[in-house]
Design a protein around this nucleic acid. Structure first.
Length: 498
RNA sequence: GGCCCCAUGGUCAAGUGGUUAAGACGUCGCGUUCUCAGCGCGGAAUCGAGGGUUCGACUCCCUCUGGGGCUACCA
């Protein structure tokens, strides 16, 4: 494969950027960048009713966030604009092609109402036949058809334009991922609509005209488009255009339902936006979706976009659908969080600010302390940055309740002894004692009292933090404010050890 | 129902006629440790079924089964 690679990602702005779309975009990007081609973004907004207000903006924003850049789009048009189908239609780009087909008798106007169509379909199904459009002008000449059109127009009916499907023809192609596929012309369900009554071209028609005009060389898209391919091929044929190479990637499946991941599946977080809000790293999302349906040669699992780009090989795309495994995503994100802590730190601190634990000014003043506290709290174990909130809440910003179990440790005979010894020792320590000093102090109590393990540590941990488990205690004590700790201990003493 | 596609552990998957069938997530156990996390070590777990082809099939062919996709004036 050589130059002149032009690939595209063509979202319809009917929603936010979905994980499945993101994957399609990612692989098209990889394809373009690996082969030094051009990556085009085209907005397929021919269904005005389904478009949502900020769909396009959100899609593009999230693509950028994922680190996917593009060479041509509505924002930065190349020489094949405009890059929104609605605008292309307004400019009359599609109409001449439709008229041409009409003139050549390869397409025709149809005035059947949706009620009629529905009735036809139901009758066919009742007769156990596959739904199939019935051509209403059988045996008529062009003139006779025109006469029919006039009759309907007089009744005020608006037509759609349907393409005549060559039913005897076989449509075959060598799919980049699936290999050879062939589908008979008679399988597409009969003459299909290329222009809707509102004048908009349909997806299957517009996509061909645009891909041709934009000189798209490779079309990498989801498996769900396989059955659209013969329809699109017959349009290429009708105009005598070269057909691009198609590649149909296996779909991402909802592990719970076993079905194609759908926007309506509320049990899975599946919008890029949602992951972004929880504090997933874009690199991690790229890493995860890049490994869904594609695998590299070696045994490594963690890859940057740049590495993916260099390794990319379209022959290693999987033919089988892949289930979405949230746990693996979490692990991958954890790896990225740990890979560059300096980069993550501001995000973590921001989460603490948003949680109301600390103001922005305080965070600035106590920056070094925060960095240490975050580390001691166990940032290495989190899956996404939002989790730092629960990790840090206790004992850094709030104290929890003393449970019955904790009370047991505190009020047992050994617990009382440990508390007394600890209280005395702690008060005697300087305010800036280091972790080693705390450790030695606790070890000394262990030796004096001959109490060890949980019997020793739990009373101290509980008395100072109201927790029965948590980060390494000596390191934690270094970070806690001594006055606060003393107060906590006094309270515990007054309440449980009086 | 029709057409198309797919099929290795719970999940992602490597593998292209001869392998002890990689690796990762998850899971389980052990160790480190006061505990959690982390880290280290180890374990369990896979070729959907049946026929062929072949000296030899996870790999090739067929059938079945299972799963998915599509079947719109949606994209």
């Amino acid at each position: 494969m050589t130059d002149d690679f032009r690939v595209r990602y063509a979202p319809s702005p009917t929603g936010y950027l979905h994980i499945g779309n993101a994957r399609t975009a990612l692989f098209n990007w990889l394809f373009a960048r690996h082969y030094n081609g051009t990556f085009v973004i085209r907005i397929e907004d021919t269904d005005a009713a389904r478009n949502i207000a900020d769909g396009e903006k959100s899609q593009l924003d999230n693509l950028k966030w994922l680190g996917l850049d593009w060479d041509e789009s509505p924002e930065n048009p190349g020489e094949y604009g405009p890059y929104r189908q609605s605008e292309r239609n307004e400019q009359g780009i599609y109409q001449p092609y439709i008229d041409d087909l009409l003139k050549r008798g390869l397409a025709y106007k149809s005035y059947k109402t949706s009620e009629q169509l529905k009735a036809e379909r139901e009758a066919q199904q009742a007769a156990k036949q596959a739904p199939h459009y019935v051509y209403e002008y059988e045996g008529m000449s062009q003139e006779e058809r025109e006469a029919e059109y006039a009759k309907y127009e007089a009744q005020g009916l608006k037509p759609v334009v349907r393409i005549r499907v060559p039913e005897d023809k076989m449509y075959e192609w060598d799919d980049i991922v699936k290999g050879h596929i062939s589908i008979g012309g008679k399988e597409v369900g009969g003459d299909w609509v290329i222009q809707k009554a509102d004048g908009m071209p349909t997806y299957n028609f517009a996509v061909v005209v645009d891909d041709h005009l934009m000189k798209i060389s490779h079309v990498l898209r989801g498996d769900d488009h396989v059955s659209n391919t013969p329809k699109q091929m017959m349009v290429y044929d009708a105009f005598g255009w070269d057909i691009p190479k198609f590649g149909h990637m296996a779909l991402i499946i909802n592990a719970a339902t076993g079905k194609k991941l759908s926007k309506r599946d509320n049990d899975v977080l599946q919008f890029v936006e949602q992951y972004r809000e929880l504090g997933y790293q874009p690199e991690a999302l790229d890493n995860f979706i890049g490994l869904l349906g594609w695998s590299p040669k070696g045994e490594d699992e963690i890859f940057s976009l740049e590495e993916f780009k260099n390794m990319f090989d379209e022959t290693r795309l999987s033919k089988a659908n892949a289930k979405f495994d949230q746990k693996k995503l979490e692990w991958i994100n954890n790896q990225w969080i740990r890979r560059d802590k300096d980069k993550i730190m501001p995000q973590l601190i921001e989460e603490l600010v948003k949680a109301g634990f600390i103001t922005e000014d305080e965070a600035k003043a106590k920056h070094d302390w925060l960095v240490q506290a975050i580390d001691v709290a166990g940032v290495d174990g989190i899956s996404y940055t939002r989790q730092i909130v629960d990790l840090m809440r206790e004992p850094f910003f709030q104290l929890g309740d003393i449970t019955d179990e904790m009370k047991e440790y505190l009020t047992s005979e050994n617990g009382r002894k440990v508390f007394a010894a600890w209280e005395e020792a702690y008060k005697a320590l300087p305010e800036d004692a280091d972790a080693d000093t705390y450790m030695k102090t606790i070890r000394a109590i262990q030796n004096n009292l001959e109490i060890k393990g949980r019997e020793l540590w739990n009373p101290i941990r509980i008395a100072t933090t109201h927790q029965i488990q948590g980060p390494n205690l000596p390191e934690l004590l270094v970070l806690l404010d001594k006055k606060q700790v003393l107060k906590t201990m006094d309270d515990v003493k007054a309440k449980y050890l009086a």
